[in-house]
Write a protein that binds this DNA or RNA. Structure first.
Lengths: 242, 242
DNA sequence: ATAAGCTATATGTACATACATAATATTCAT
DNA sequence: ATGAATATTATGTATGTACATATAGCTTAT
């Protein structure tokens, strides 16, 4: 395969270079501690300036995917992408993997006016309505999580989809959108009246709040997902190795 | 203005600029959503090129401390203390990197009888005592996290170490033990009387509970770390890509 | 044989420059 | 008044250039 960059594309060169480097890293030819071509050579191959190439390299170095050493070169970090399998299972798959039977208590679909958060993340106009998906899920004995998802209008979801199918299957198969990057923020909160009622707990009880920003292949925002978990029924696990 | 850069210093200009920006961010004049001077102006004030200034700005933007918007300007982001997974910086390093001054409120060292959890994780005998390190840490205004650490007896820690030094530095330099793998469990809890008193919050308030199992190079258990975080002052972030 | 010095290599630092583009503010024509 | 065109402002993208410096390997003098 040959890696190349399109100089006529609207996509900035350093972004193209970054994506390309990510692919190179995945390539067996380079992965696992192997060295990339040096900066001067690589910039010539890609027909971009060294400065532009370094802009792309910097990002990956910052993310810990590449390791640069003065006088030596740039190599792919040994660190395997952790928590891969954990994070990319669907809710039902994840629960199934833990041997937990699940039940869907509520499912509500609506078109709503975006709040500031959504406008900013999606980069849309305040008057553009977005699809909102609310779900109350849990075990047969009772719900333990309340999800709210907002989807970027450009995906083309119309609200008529069968949301009993795994969400990412719908997006991938029917809309050719693949969730590739997810940034999550996890914090503890006190349940407000609304959430408390849904989760059948007392107002003020602690809940785990999980906010997920989901992006597609080209780092365009596709979903904002808010999860409110009953405190003692959910544990978030992360594994990392250096 | 009091901020300035030393062109004769051995420290690279962009590093000086970065440190300086961190101080500016802390300065009441700029903190909390306020705008920095624009890049051209600021680079002139600091007597460095715009390119060099942007090198420094980029880092802080990556870290989420600054928010840049084309045509608008660069402003300080609303600050919440956050922790990235896959980040092997120590607590103090992490806070320092975010320009957050920290204070250690309490430090308590003791030898205790292990509980079931510890016996199982360390694989030791119930009679074998373990070193327990308790710490109350936070900002100058008040504590926001209470840590409890237990260490495997085989490491050789005697309790006389200077725990003001970064923990992983002590382990690495003095005991030749390198923390390599960490498994974390994050959940929400209600603060019990003890934790509530430490964190200066009401009993029953939500807290983020983080349990870290730390292993060395050969996957032998070395530390069990429990962290109790005040809910509104800590956000745990995870980023994953497939 | 070995320490000291040199050399090649690849990344690190720094600047000047030019033009593109997003967001906002202003002006102008209807 | 109101919408469209225009200007202003600040960041975004991209290049070319020059020299500094850390590392490893090679060479040379003792």
């Amino acid at each position: 395969m040959k890696f190349s960059i399109d100089h006529n594309s609207a996509i900035p060169l350093h972004v193209q270079a970054e994506e390309l480097l990510r692919k190179m890293i995945e390539d067996p030819q380079f992965r696992n501690g192997k060295f990339l071509p040096n900066e001067v050579e690589l910039s010539q191959q890609l027909e971009i300036s060294r400065t532009t190439l370094r802009q792309a390299l910097n990002k990956l170095v910052y993310e810990g995917l590449l390791i640069r050493k003065k006088g030596i070169g740039t190599r792919v970090s040994e660190k395997t992408v952790s928590s891969k399998s954990m994070n990319w299972k669907s809710f039902s798959q994840e629960m199934a993997a833990r041997g937990i039977p699940i039940r869907n208590f509520e499912l509500h679909i609506s078109w709503v006016k975006p709040n500031e958060d959504i406008i900013h993340f999606f980069g849309i106009k305040p008057e553009e309505k977005v699809l909102k998906l609310e779900r109350l899920r849990g075990r047969p004995e009772g719900p333990f999580v309340y999800f709210v998802s907002y989807f970027h209008p450009s995906i083309g979801l119309n609200g008529e989809e069968d949301f009993k199918r795994p969400l990412y299957e719908i997006l991938e198969q029917d809309y050719k959108v693949t969730a590739t990057l997810s940034k999550e923020e996890i914090s503890a909160k006190a349940a407000d009246n609304f959430i408390a009622a849904k989760l059948e707990i007392d107002t003020g009880s602690p809940i785990l709040f999980r906010k997920r920003f989901v992006y597609d292949q080209s780092d365009k925002p596709i979903e904002l997902n808010l999860g409110y978990y009953k405190s003692d029924s959910f544990i978030y696990t992360v594994e990392s190795r250096r």
